Structure formats: C-alpha cells, structure tokens
Computed example of a mutant assay.
Amino acid sequence: MATRLKELDRPAMREERQSVRMWALVDYGDVSENAVVRDLSATGFGIETARVLPEGAAIAVTIGASAPLAAIVVHASDDRYGCRLADPLDAAMLDALTRDGPFASARPTPAPAPQVASYPRGVRAGAIAGAAIACWTVVLGLGFAIFA
C-alpha cells in the first residue's frame, strides 16, 4: 500500500514546493490538532504535527482562515507528513496562502467546549444540605419501620 501511494504521488512531488511556515488545523477522525505547514504546492503540502497520521489517511486541513482542504497522507516520517491534496489549488489560492510570509496565518484553534452553567455558591450549598437531610430522613424512617 505504501509503495502504491508513493507511485501515485510521483508527479505531485515534481511540482514546485514553496517553503513556508504557517499554522494549520488538521482534522482526522473526531480530533482536531494544531500543525505547522512546512511546504506547499498546488498539489500537496508537508506538515508537522504531534498527531499520528497513518499513510493513506484522509484528512482535512485548515490553513489560517482558508476553507478546509481535503488531502491524503502519502508519506509519514516521525512527526512530519507529506500530503496530496484531493483538489489541486489554483494559482490565486496558492498565492494568497503563501504571499504573507512566515506564520502570517493566524493560529487556528479548535471550537471551544460548550460552557456549563454554574449555580451560585448558596444554591449549591442548599442543594447539598437538602439532599443530605432527605437521605437521613429516609435512613431514619427505614430504621424506625424495621425496628419498631
């Protein structure tokens, strides 16, 4: 399988890659992970991420404020990966992604976790005290019913 992916990627590897350094967000499975794009061409890119991505994995990559780009991992070495884009970038998009220099794109962040409402301290203390009183009422009531 790895040989086949590399054979399919040979033309893309001849494409001129521009050395860049941009923040990206990699979506694989149900997990989003920050990454750094190291090189970029119209047909693919190289990224560095702590997330383990097996060769042949279908991923989505968001570079800066761009829309997610679908890609396939074609090469994996430690924490660096070579990826082939499902749809090649047109010249305008490639220029827009590479013209602003290193780390020009804002660091993307995963969607924040939903906020859970927190009740005031008095309400929480009242709920705990009420629950304790209810439990002791049940224990004492059962005790009297059984032993009386």
Score class of each variant (00 low, 15 high):
33 E>H: 10
104 A>T: 05
45 F>Y: 02
29 G>P: 03
39 D>V: 03
107 R>N: 07
134 A>S: 08
22 M>G: 09
136 W>Y: 10
112 P>N: 06
36 V>G: 01
135 C>I: 11
143 G>S: 10
48 E>F: 00
66 S>W: 05
102 P>R: 13
11 P>V: 05
118 S>W: 01
78 D>S: 13
97 L>D: 00
137 T>Y: 06
138 V>L: 15
40 L>H: 03
56 G>E: 03
133 I>F: 09
80 R>N: 09
133 I>C: 11
24 A>L: 00
121 R>D: 10
94 L>P: 06
31 V>S: 07
137 T>S: 14
98 T>Y: 01
102 P>G: 10
127 A>C: 07
11 P>K: 01
6 K>N: 12
54 P>I: 04
94 L>H: 14
145 A>Q: 08
7 E>K: 13
32 S>P: 01
22 M>K: 12
40 L>D: 02
12 A>T: 02
34 N>Y: 06
58 A>L: 10
137 T>M: 12
36 V>A: 08
125 A>F: 09
103 F>D: 07
38 R>A: 06
32 S>Q: 15
6 K>S: 13
91 A>M: 08
41 S>C: 02
5 L>G: 00
97 L>S: 03
3 T>K: 15
90 D>I: 00
79 D>K: 13
93 M>S: 14
116 V>D: 07
115 Q>M: 10
112 P>M: 05
94 L>C: 08
